[in-house]
Design a protein around this nucleic acid. Structure first.
Lengths: 157, 157
DNA sequence: AGAAAATGTTTTCCATGGATAGTATTTTCG
DNA sequence: CGAAAATACTATCCATGGAAAACATTTTCT
């Protein structure tokens, strides 16, 4: 038998105190958790979380302005440019400059882009729900509902 | 009278569809929202969100190892080094190297650090609760509870 | 019409935080 | 005991995304 049962070394447990109820900290930890599952399950498609979201939005809002989509999901124009360029290089998206207002850039999916989104749609909207996440189905939807209220996307019921 | 009532330009509304129920996207938007309020209300103290959290944890867990604290809140050792160095430079934290195991670094608050934490504690734990956030008090605590379950910090009740 | 303002995107530069490798110290094991 | 492994922190380099300015085009105002 081993000398002691200490699992690893000491693994000293750190107390959170009231900080364990801080919304900010909880949101950060949750997001890291989601990223973990995302990369574990979907990384083989070669897309980052925000990239699929943008493809999805373009598919739902064809010919929307690049800036409008960026603003809606709070990604900065500078970053949007790079993100869209990668999608264009990958052959999933095309930029269209309308004749009547040549300041703006409209986005639409290419054939390949459409195919990609319809094929992967289900996988990208359910990768978490399937996961054993510690939450019952009803708690999961309640969590989503509360976050939607928090973001002004839904009335408090 | 103006020619038209269009509020700004067109401000074309972007549809989210099912993506509006994506936990990942909702978490990201929520976190941005919290950061916004944080910087609006607390930036004058010159601390970033993670920095106050670390001070708090040191205060609750005096002489904890630098690495243990980092691991607990999922910040990487490399980043922890820089973060702690800034706190040391600011005179809030001191590093102690214990004689019996000189590989590790223990952290503790200086006098000034203790004073800072006790003075600001309330402000940093309540800056969101006061805020008009669209959630009733009970929904707010329910949200916190669900996030705690999601992070394995609490049993599903 | 022409100058000034507004709109929308892209370019350049910078801050943040992570990955990898390096250094120092202690522990383990032949 | 001495070499190898383990532990813990730090230094260097890199990727991501944002800020500010530059650029191009269109609209407004006199």
């Amino acid at each position: 038998m081993n000398k002691q049962v200490l699992p690893k070394s000491s693994e000293a447990e750190i107390e959170f105190g009231e900080m364990g109820h801080s919304l900010g900290l909880l949101l950060r930890l949750s997001q890291l958790r989601v990223f973990e599952v995302f990369y574990e399950k979907l990384s083989h498609h070669g897309l980052k979380p925000g990239e699929f979201t943008v493809l999805w939005l373009i598919s739902l809002n064809p010919d929307a302005k690049q800036g409008d989509i960026a603003r809606r999901i709070h990604i900065k124009p500078a970053h949007m440019t790079k993100l869209v360029s990668r999608a264009v290089d990958a052959g999933l998206v095309e930029r269209v400059i309308p004749e009547d207002d040549r300041r703006s850039v409209r986005l639409r999916l290419t054939q390949a882009g459409e195919r990609f989104v319809t094929e992967k749609k289900r996988e990208f909207t359910t990768y978490l729900a399937d996961e054993n996440i510690g939450l019952s189905d009803s708690d999961f939807s309640e969590l989503v509902r509360l976050l939607r209220v928090f973001n002004g996307m839904e009335d408090p019921k």
